[in-house]
């Protein structure tokens, strides 16, 4: 009888233990979901708040085609979005080749020596340097030491340096995910290292590299602090010279040395105004900025998803 009782109480003990474990599991899963809901609703709340506030300006076609103005209802984002596009062209033109080349070097060429270690630690560290410090670099080096002014070129340069680690790291990851077999096949056919890299590794790594470039550029589009630091928060009510013209030589690069403004700077200058009407403009600019960056991120995520589910 005693042993039977013992068994029963053991079984009851186990049952309560199992019940407690189950409750704990439900609690954790519930909390996890709750945090997720908070995160997602923050994203939604941000977007909806901006959208509803900015709707009057967003509906107005003039908003996209006018310069900033002292009158809130006439102010637009023309110089800002043109500036963003121009700065992004410079940023992409500098950071993508430089970052991909550095990534290829570290992944394929670098031997294991102190120099490689130095570069690797350095890239990791640069990724963690606050963006405003890049702004100080640009201010001290480009603006004062080199005597450049607050131009599209300087903004493109500083944003390139800022997103360089992103592109280097994603290039390395993309190359690392290519099967060793491709490389062996090319080498086995007599290809030298550059032929292998250029003709076989880079094409296979292209989706990953593009993803990294898009993520990096989307970060550059939203960056405000380094651009403020170089002193580019100015009132820009004109456009740089168009890069393509009807006269010979048809293409010019005057725009590179032109003063500029960009979307986040325009938004910041509106946010900083006390008048409520300018907050509407700020919200509208925020919607454009958010749509732009979310779209770029969505494209990057989609490419990554496609690549992962190809086989």
């Amino acid at each position: 009888m005693a042993t039977l009782n013992q068994t029963i109480s053991d079984a009851q003990g186990h049952a309560s233990l199992v019940r407690r474990n189950k409750n704990q599991d439900i609690l954790i899963a519930g909390l996890g979901m709750l945090i997720l809901v908070i995160a997602i609703s923050t994203l939604l709340a941000m977007f909806l708040d901006l959208f509803i506030t900015g709707l009057p300006r967003l509906q107005d076609p003039d908003f996209y085609m006018s310069f900033p103005s002292r009158k809130a209802e006439q102010a637009g984002i023309l110089s800002a979005w043109v500036g963003t596009i121009l700065v992004m062209i410079v940023t992409a033109a500098i950071s993508i080749p430089l970052g991909v080349a550095a990534g290829v070097y570290l992944e394929e060429y670098a031997g294991s020596n102190w120099m490689t270690d130095l570069i690797e630690i350095n890239v990791t560290n640069l990724a963690g340097v606050p963006s405003i410090v890049y702004g100080l670099l640009a201010l001290g080096l480009f603006i004062y030491a080199f005597g450049m002014s607050e131009t599209v070129l300087v903004a493109g340069l500083v944003l390139s340096l800022l997103i360089l680690p992103v592109i280097i790291v994603s290039t390395r990851e993309a190359i690392r995910s290519i099967p060793e077999a491709y490389k062996e096949a090319a080498i086995g056919l007599g290809a030298d290292q550059w032929q292998t890299t250029y003709a076989y590794i880079l094409p296979a790594a292209r989706p990953g590299i593009i993803t990294g470039a898009i993520v990096g550029l989307s970060r550059a589009i939203g960056e405000t602090a380094p651009i403020i630091t170089i002193g580019a928060l100015t009132y820009i009510a004109f456009l740089p010279n168009a890069p393509i013209s009807g006269d010979f030589p048809f293409i010019n690069f005057d725009w590179i040395t032109s003063p500029f403004t960009v979307m986040p700077i325009q938004m910041f200058s509106w946010v900083s105004r006390p008048q409520a009407e300018f907050q509407i403009n700020a919200a509208a600019a925020g919607v454009v900025l958010m749509v732009l960056t979310l779209m770029m991120n969505a494209i990057a995520i989609y490419i990554r998803y496609k690549v992962r589910h190809k086989d």
Partner: peptide, 24 residues
């Protein structure tokens, strides 16, 4: 499904977060 949402959250420009903090 969650990872992309978190990535999106990470991709929002900080100035938008600033506006959100001040205005909402």
């Amino acid at each position: 499904a969650v990872k992309p949402v978190l990535e999106m959250l990470e991709g929002v420009p900080t100035i938008v977060y600033g506006y959100f903090a001040l205005m909402m």
